[in-house]
Amino acid sequence: MSEEIHRRFVEIAGGLSPVLVDALERGGPVAFRADASQPLAERLCRSVAGQQLSVKAARSIWSRVLTAAGSMPLTEFLVETNGEAIRACGLSAAKTRAMCAIAREARAGGLEAGELRDLDHAARSRRLTALWGVGQWTADMISIFYFGDEDVWPDGDVAARKTLSRLTSPRRKTVRTAARFAPYRSRLALYMWRHADAPPV
């Protein structure tokens, strides 16, 4: 499947930019794997906690959150009355508020993964971004990496957007360019992230 999609991507890229063709061919097919092994609320909280942080810093903070929660279920620990203990893990007041909002929604039964999996990305995004502190970028990442939605273009992700723009044309809107790769736009983002992390040739 990955090989077939890769060939299709190279063909589409041929009508857009030889630089994009070269980038795709040099990297080869990308593997696309979703991971829903954690409860959705926990994954959402971890995503919020790690926003705008390095991977190392995000892991460190999340480890402190889990340690602070101890044997208590995370959605029970993440309540406003524990705000001081949560912030002491290295989280801002805004991130603490967002994580408590996610946990509150989970306790109320509003974050059932099975129900959200049945929605399309637009409807799922509306549900997730209705939570305080959860933006479109987080909704996109959850759709791609948790629910395995293959057709999400995360235009709010700076690395994906800038890489696609650089490999095609800065004058063309990346949303329009990405639309050419439907229904596999999530894979296009994976190609862009891999290229952004690749050492220059």
Rank of each mutant, 00 (worst) to 15 (best):
residue 6 H to P: 05
residue 12 I to R: 13
residue 14 G to M: 08
residue 16 L to C: 05
residue 18 P to D: 10
residue 19 V to P: 03
residue 33 R to A: 14
residue 33 R to H: 14
residue 34 A to R: 14
residue 35 D to G: 09
residue 37 S to K: 11
residue 42 E to R: 15
residue 42 E to C: 08
residue 48 V to C: 00
residue 49 A to C: 09
residue 49 A to H: 08
residue 49 A to Y: 05
residue 49 A to I: 03
residue 51 Q to I: 01
residue 53 L to P: 02
residue 54 S to E: 07
residue 54 S to L: 10
residue 57 A to G: 05
residue 59 R to L: 11
residue 61 I to E: 01
residue 61 I to R: 01
residue 62 W to Q: 08
residue 63 S to F: 07
residue 65 V to K: 04
residue 66 L to H: 09
residue 69 A to I: 05
residue 71 S to C: 11
residue 72 M to E: 15
residue 74 L to C: 02
residue 75 T to L: 13
residue 75 T to D: 12
residue 76 E to F: 09
residue 78 L to W: 05
residue 79 V to F: 06
residue 79 V to G: 09
residue 82 N to P: 08
residue 84 E to Y: 02
residue 86 I to C: 03
residue 86 I to N: 01
residue 86 I to S: 01
residue 86 I to F: 00
residue 89 C to G: 03
residue 90 G to H: 13
residue 92 S to Y: 03
residue 93 A to E: 08
residue 93 A to L: 12
residue 94 A to Y: 04
residue 95 K to D: 00
residue 97 R to S: 13
residue 98 A to P: 08
residue 100 C to K: 05
residue 104 R to I: 03
residue 104 R to F: 06
residue 105 E to N: 14
residue 106 A to Q: 08
residue 107 R to T: 08
residue 107 R to L: 07
residue 108 A to K: 11
residue 109 G to S: 09
residue 110 G to L: 06
residue 111 L to C: 01
residue 115 E to A: 15
residue 116 L to H: 06
residue 118 D to Y: 07
residue 120 D to M: 12
residue 120 D to G: 09
residue 122 A to R: 12
residue 123 A to K: 03
residue 130 A to N: 00
residue 130 A to C: 00
residue 131 L to Y: 02
residue 131 L to G: 02
residue 131 L to Q: 02
residue 134 V to K: 02
residue 136 Q to H: 12
residue 141 M to Q: 10
residue 143 S to L: 11
residue 145 F to D: 03
residue 149 D to I: 04
residue 153 W to P: 07
residue 159 A to C: 10
residue 162 K to L: 12
residue 163 T to S: 07
residue 166 R to Q: 15
residue 166 R to L: 15
residue 167 L to D: 02
residue 170 P to N: 07
residue 175 V to S: 15
residue 177 T to D: 11
residue 177 T to H: 12
residue 177 T to R: 14
residue 178 A to K: 07
residue 179 A to Y: 08
residue 182 A to Q: 14
residue 183 P to R: 06
residue 183 P to K: 10
residue 184 Y to D: 10
residue 185 R to H: 05
residue 187 R to I: 15
residue 189 A to P: 03
residue 189 A to V: 01
residue 189 A to N: 03
residue 195 H to F: 15
residue 200 P to D: 11
residue 201 V to S: 13
